[in-house]
Design a binder for these strands. Structure first.
Length: 720
DNA sequence: CTAGGGTTAG
């Protein structure tokens, strides 16, 4: 007997160190010896084997060890439940939980936390309720877990807060910390501050400080976050990777590159730049602060042993720097080759890159892959990204189909589909969905209102636009921002209400940005108001001295008004200042390859055929009544004759891309062309004729919206 | 209990 107890004791000790060190080899041989030996079966020992396998991610082995346990107790169940929860196999975890004769505090806490991880608020809450009804003892973990599970519902968090207060659980720092975090994540910085300030010096731990730094960062209070960080240093807190990562999110949020650079230096000094959390924070900071992806790439290569999140940070960085969208797809494939399984976040990023590229064939591929991959957790964000992808690829039907098939919608889903309809110029549908949203008391966001106002602007709904704009602050509780004002100026200007637009820009509560002046300038061009155009162009220039848009607009307006000297003066100014017009560029996908066309660029291998086709087409078009509008030819000098201007017009990138599509696709197949700038007025007219003559549906997505040409008409109704 | 990645507009 003494011999057995000695053996048991030494077994326990070795096994414990195996668990601590994840020493699977020793642990397994210990298990074999244990099963073959005469040691009486001990539930205690068996439980520790379950723990060991769970820690080493050997789920089946852990379950096997559980089955071999003669008299499993609560502890055995809890160990196995934790193992399944870790692998997000929540149903098995639940099944095991239901088999426990008398679940204890740990059983409940484990399952609540598992539900919290999955974002399953209802299940977590019902367990919590069950605990209270049973009169079971709770602890700080129970509360933090259930608060995490309620992360998106402010109302519930408030209730839990008062419950924690009345039952004394708010004395746990962890409970206060999670309240602080989730108040902030729900947009209520004031409440987060109150929790933080209410804690007092002695209670606050480093977690509280880090959480508050992140809270300030999320609300774009860069200075406050930094002040808090300095305070931490001053008080002698050790600056670890948690703090570094927290401060880095602040720089990403407020786009403070110089601050980010300073902390990169700090990270290198402490070696934390190789840490995955800090490293991905750095990658994200460089991507969001406009440092380009080359800096991000450098950090990426220094990180010791990357993981899925680090890869996703890279993919998202490429996708957010829109011109690097092709690299985003490449990065996704590199990640797959490196042996990582994409998760929902990987798909969201890569699908958004496909939206930027308007590449329906690749977008569909990722859609199929995402379905095959059975993404864990909620797929809603993947579906949201897909709705946008289909819509931006010109395929509103599939976007709408997916929208109706989705099991669940949230604000982003609605914003996406509303924006889709707005960009396609289907204002009625946008407004309908918006009214449905309000009726279902889903709160619109500032983005919803940008979409709604631009839907009104695209379709000439002046009164409705004004109505919604005036409702913003009082009814929806959304403070109008620069974007909303720009939409309103666009709305009024396009409708010809130039003086009203001017009044709005003059009475804005903050100084108008370049977008506002650009909207006004566009309206002036449409209605030929030279005087106001000069004012708008000058204001624009002061804000963005290197932008070619105001020069080009003014010059073409002077030409159109036959003020040749003025036009020449502007062009000379532009030359002298070294400002160049951003070249117009259009692309079209054919057989899964993207063909790019730039005006006056003859590098495409089939350019001869394309131009011959265009020449023939122009003859037919002119016979049908097409008259080239040479005002849209941007000439570099003043000796250019009308004939030459006409030829220049014929070489605009969107015409080349459309001709290429008509020439090399099957008859009847609809075309999708994307342009980086706004479509030119002459091309808009020309493509109408082309759609009628070639009997094709031709969709052009420009920088503003979709133009869907069919049978000689455009879906925008020439209101653009 | 705290730190890294995401979708929507212009």
């Amino acid at each position: 007997m003494t011999q057995f107890s000695w053996t048991l004791q030494s077994f326990r000790q070795i096994l414990k160190s195996c668990i601590a060190n994840k020493d699977l080899l020793t642990g397994k041989s210990l298990h074999t010896i244990y099963l073959k030996s005469l040691i009486p079966s001990s539930t205690y020992l068996s439980n520790h084997f379950i723990l060991l396998y769970s820690k080493c991610n050997l789920l089946t082995t852990a379950h096997h060890a559980f089955n071999q346990t003669h008299e499993p107790n609560v502890f055995s169940f809890n160990a196995l439940i934790a193992a399944y929860a870790k692998e997000s196999l929540i149903h098995v975890a639940r099944h095991l939980f239901d088999q426990i004769p008398q679940p204890d505090l740990v059983s409940f806490n484990t399952l609540i936390n598992a539900y919290a991880d999955r974002g399953d608020t209802l299940s977590a809450l019902s367990l919590f309720r069950e605990m209270r009804e049973m009169g079971l003892v709770m602890d700080g973990f129970t509360f933090s877990g259930v608060i995490t599970a309620c992360c998106n519902h402010v109302g519930l968090i408030r209730q839990l807060h008062s419950l924690a207060f009345s039952s004394g659980f708010d004395s746990y720092v962890s409970v206060k910390n999670s309240l602080l975090t989730y108040y902030s994540k729900n947009g209520i910085l004031e409440e987060a501050e109150m929790v933080f300030n209410g804690m007092g010096e002695e209670v606050r731990d480093e977690v509280s400080w880090n959480s508050m730094i992140v809270a300030y960062g999320q609300h774009k209070r860069g200075l406050k976050a930094l002040a808090l960080y300095r305070d931490m240093v001053h008080r002698g807190f050790e600056i670890d990777m948690f703090t570094l990562a927290s401060v880095l999110t602040t720089f990403s949020c407020v786009e403070d590159l110089s601050g980010g650079l300073q902390f990169h230096a700090k990270a290198i000094k402490t070696g934390f730049n190789k840490n995955r959390h800090v490293g991905s924070g750095l990658i994200d900071m460089y991507a969001k602060c406009g440092a380009g992806m080359s800096e991000s790439r450098k950090v990426f290569e220094e990180i010791c042993g990357s993981d899925l999140v680090v890869w996703n940070t890279m993919i998202s960085g490429y996708a957010q720097n829109k011109e690097l969208s092709v690299e985003a797809l490449e990065c996704f494939r590199q990640m797959q080759r490196a042996g990582y399984w994409p998760d929902d976040c990987s798909f969201v990023c890569v699908i958004s890159a496909c939206s930027n590229l308007s590449s329906p064939s690749q977008g569909k591929q990722f859609h199929a892959l995402a379905m095959k991959s059975e993404i864990p957790s909620n797929q809603i964000s993947v579906n949201n990204a897909l709705v946008t992808m289909y819509s931006k690829c010109g395929n509103l039907q599939d976007a709408r189909k997916l929208f109706h098939r989705m099991p669940e919608h949230n604000t982003v889903t609605l914003n996406s589909i509303i924006a889709g309809y707005a960009q396609h110029g289907i204002g009625t549908e946008s407004l309908n969905l918006f009214e449905q949203m309000l009726a279902a008391s889903i709160a619109p966001t500032s983005i919803t209102l940008v979409s709604i106002l631009s839907a009104c602007a695209h379709t000439g709904r002046v009164e409705e636009g004004k109505k919604y704009f005036s409702m913003m602050k009082d009814v929806f509780g959304i403070e109008p921002e620069a974007e909303h004002y720009s939409c309103m100026i666009d709305l009024l200007g396009r409708a010809g209400k130039l003086s009203e637009a001017e009044r709005l820009i003059d009475t804005m509560p903050f100084s108008p940005g370049s977008a506002a002046w650009a909207a006004l300038l566009g309206a002036c061009r449409k209605y030929g108001n030279m005087e106001l155009a000069e004012k708008a162009a000058n204001q624009f220039l002061q804000l963005e001295p290197t932008n070619a848009v105001p020069y080009v607009m003014l010059a073409s307006m002077y030409s159109a008004a036959r003020k040749w000297e003025e036009a020449a003066r502007i062009r000379k100014l532009m030359r002298d200042r070294g400002i160049r017009k951003k070249p117009g560029c259009s692309w079209i996908e054919l057989n899964k390859r993207v063909h790019v066309f730039v005006a006056e660029d003859n590098s495409h291998p089939r350019i001869k055929e394309i131009q011959m086709y265009l020449d023939e087409m122009f003859v037919k078009m002119k016979r049908a009544g097409y008259v080239p509008d040479v005002r849209w030819a941007f000439v570099k000098d003043d000796e250019t004759g009308e004939q030459e201007k006409e030829i220049m017009l014929a070489h605009h990138s969107e015409k080349l891309a459309v001709a290429f599509g008509l020439l090399f696709t099957k008859h009847g197949e609809p075309l999708l062309v994307v342009k980086n700038l706004r479509i030119c007025g002459d091309c808009h007219n020309a493509i109408k004729f082309m759609s009628a003559i070639a009997r094709r549906k031709i969709t052009v997505r420009d920088a503003y919206r979709f133009h869907c040409f069919e049978d000689g008409r455009c879906s925008c109704g020439d209101y653009w």
